[in-house]
């Protein structure tokens, strides 16, 4: 049942070469993380360290370690996790509900509004940035986490689109049968469609998770108190203005930061692909 006929060995060789290329920045990041500081700054860098300094990891994530107090890593991890979980929760709840309205219910203005929704994906971020900042400033939310997670509870065009496409692949008969059984729309949504939509919801959750975890711009604009920083923003603290950056520690911290994301992706990818496949990003 092969879809196409490549020789397996060739495929593996090509894949290994390609993945080496793809993974090279990451590899270098990890090997730099365990190098002594001198070796991170040599003009002719080597891939492997002369000695493996594993304790760069604890050093990088311990607050007030030795001569250089870096970042309160655990505090930042907690902040990041909190914002990320709230965003995931918010986007899963809101987008499913909204997508249901677009996919399965009839209401005046639906199709026009859907077209507008799609068009909003084309609005460049910088257009929104300034007035949105003004809005949060007006609400007095600048400096708090609220600008980072509250919008997630109001849906996003991309996720709505994805979920709508998914809901549309489920036969209408299912809803109609439930309706005959006396189910309300709410019941149909929660008891019939949501259980079926798990893979698509997983995609939305994952996209949100990865986007929020690595988001730099949002925290940079809205967070001002250092105690509220997220990890991606905190990483910047390793870089100093006129050089003297502890590259090994920066890379160690960066490795620790992306580790959870890689793990989540590795274990969730099957569902991830399935979710995208079944929702079908097709007209």
């Amino acid at each position: 049942m092969k879809a196409q006929k490549f020789s397996t060995a060739t495929v593996h060789i090509v894949l290994i070469v390609m993945s080496l290329i793809f993974v090279s920045p990451l590899l270098w990041m990890v090997t730099t993380a365990i190098k002594p500081i001198e070796e991170t700054m040599t003009a002719t860098p080597t891939l492997l360290p002369s000695k493996f300094l594993w304790d760069n990891f604890p050093k990088a994530v311990t607050y007030g370690s030795k001569e250089l107090g870096y970042i309160p890593f655990l505090l930042y991890a907690r902040n990041t996790l909190m914002v990320t979980l709230l965003c995931v929760a918010g986007s899963v709840c809101s987008n499913a509900v909204v997508a249901y309205a677009f996919a399965r219910l009839r209401w005046p203005g639906r199709d026009a509004f859907f077209a507008v929704t799609l068009a909003t994906m084309m609005v460049p971020f910088p257009v929104l940035m300034v007035p949105t900042f003004g809005l949060f400033k007006y609400l007095g939310w600048v400096g708090s986490f609220r600008p980072l997670w509250v919008p997630a509870f109001f849906g996003s065009a991309f996720s709505i689109f994805l979920l709508r496409q998914f809901f549309r692949t489920i036969p209408m008969e299912l809803s109609e049968a439930a309706k005959i059984d006396g189910c309300s729309e709410v019941r149909i949504f929660t008891d019939v469609l949501l259980p079926l939509a798990k893979p698509a919801l997983a995609v939305v959750a994952l996209f949100t998770f990865m986007g929020t975890w690595n988001d730099f711009m949002g925290p940079m604009i809205y967070l001002s108190d250092q105690e509220t920083f997220t990890l991606s923003l905190g990483l910047q603290a390793y870089q100093s203005q006129h050089g003297g950056t502890q590259w090994n520690l920066l890379m160690a911290a960066a490795t620790v930061v992306i580790l959870p994301v890689i793990v989540v992706f590795f274990f969730a990818q099957k569902m991830f692909i399935q979710g995208i496949a079944t929702s079908g990003l097709k007209g």
Partner: peptide, 9 residues
């Protein structure tokens, strides 16, 4: 993975 490495690094 490359899409996941933080920008600073």
């Amino acid at each position: 993975v490359p899409s996941l490495v933080p920008m600073v690094a």
